[in-house]
Design a protein around this nucleic acid. Structure first.
Lengths: 215, 215
DNA sequence: CACTTTCTGTTGCTTTTGCAACAAACGGAG
DNA sequence: CTCCGTTTGTTGCAAAAGCAACAGAAAGTG
């Protein structure tokens, strides 16, 4: 079992005490069942112990839009719980049979009377998780706020190059996923990638990309 | 002076003690000077006491891109500090003469030995601020991930209507700002708005908008 | 009030995009 | 190897978007 970042730095021997102290409840959901519906009150954080879940946002036309897919160790609901908003506008559905640990937010951030060692760690971890998501979103925002497909691709590739400290790197997205991530048409992206390669800007083969003509 | 959300719920009489305990340092910056450069290490949170600052992200072409403008009471650097990333890829520049309170992140989240009452409040506030930003970004992302100008406009307007619990409302953006927010061309947006009005989807006059033919 | 600057809407033109449909390449499963 | 589903690249076409330039309206400014 993959351990959630939420519990990092906490001694595994303390898990039992911790879960009890936090009043964590484990629930099972079968494939396709709803774990949380848009409009529901969220005063807890969900930790995925096993299985996968989809985060869904519904359009004003009623179109279901998959925002993200989360797996073992990932959290959901933290943003709503932490912000004190209380109401989610996202729906969470089980992509597979899964088990979820529900932890009341109040208990999570309130240092208890027994001064358990892990409370401050939990809080720091939570802060870190939320802040990281923040940075990730901000990075993605930089990309999709570009107005042309080419600029989106280029920004994405430059960021990847920087992450990898090299102008050659593998990307982990399939073409379809990449198009989704960049919020463009797959075919338009494909066309543009081809053009960029012909113009000598980039070179790629399968998932290996190189940025050419530095600068 | 507007009080930062970071200090909400804390007795003003405790401010002196708190700032001392946190080791907060007030610094003055003159207009256009740089407060933080992309690439700098960020182990502190900046609280704007007075004045305004711009958050800037630089393109791979070197184009400066203004992400946000912050004013009194706003924070910057929290995401990088909280995430433990340490290095900012954003630049912060003074839009006007301003004074900033710099607070070491370590001190902010570590409950001190004197068990000051405000420490836990600070942490909860920080978590709330970061989480809220998270939700805001996620909302904006929903909008700009739409592929056509019309869908972006429509999603934005529907969200505003929901926020205002009415299908009539005022928007706070100028047309220019709105176009920037939606990441589209101002002229294309204007054209599309006109079209939508002619088609009887919406009605607007200046900054007053109405959504017609409910659903 | 006259003058200037900013904001908003409009339009012609070119390029880009979305969409749909198809073909080639790939990757298992039997 | 063959068959079949999936992924990727390609293309024609219509619609949309970007760009640039201009004009009228609105909002300061002296």
């Amino acid at each position: 079992m993959k351990i959630s970042e939420l519990f990092s730095g906490i001694d595994q021997n303390d898990y039992g005490t911790m879960i009890t102290c936090l009043g964590g409840v484990e629930k099972k959901y079968s494939k396709d069942s709803y774990i949380l519906m848009a409009g529901d009150t969220v005063d807890y954080v969900g930790v995925i112990l096993s299985g996968k879940v989809k985060i869904i946002k519904e359009d004003f036309f009623g179109t279901r839009n998959i925002i993200a897919e989360l797996g073992e160790g990932d959290l959901f609901g933290e943003a709503y719980a932490c912000a004190g908003v209380g109401i989610s506008n996202e729906t969470v559905q089980a992509s597979s049979d899964c088990s979820i640990m529900m932890i009341k937010f109040k208990k999570l951030i309130t240092t208890c009377s027994n001064t358990c060692a892990f409370h401050s760690a939990l809080i720091a971890n939570m802060l870190k998780i939320v802040a990281k998501k923040n940075i990730d979103m901000s990075d993605k925002m930089e990309i999709i706020s570009k107005r042309t497909t080419r600029d989106k691709i280029m920004t994405y590739l430059m960021n990847e190059a920087e992450k990898n400290h090299s102008d050659q790197f593998e990307i982990s997205f399939s073409r379809n996923e990449l198009a989704d991530y960049l919020c463009v048409e797959r075919s338009a992206m494909s066309r543009e990638l081809g053009k960029m390669q012909r113009e000598g800007l980039i070179h790629y083969h399968k998932n290996h990309f190189s940025l050419l003509e530095a600068q």
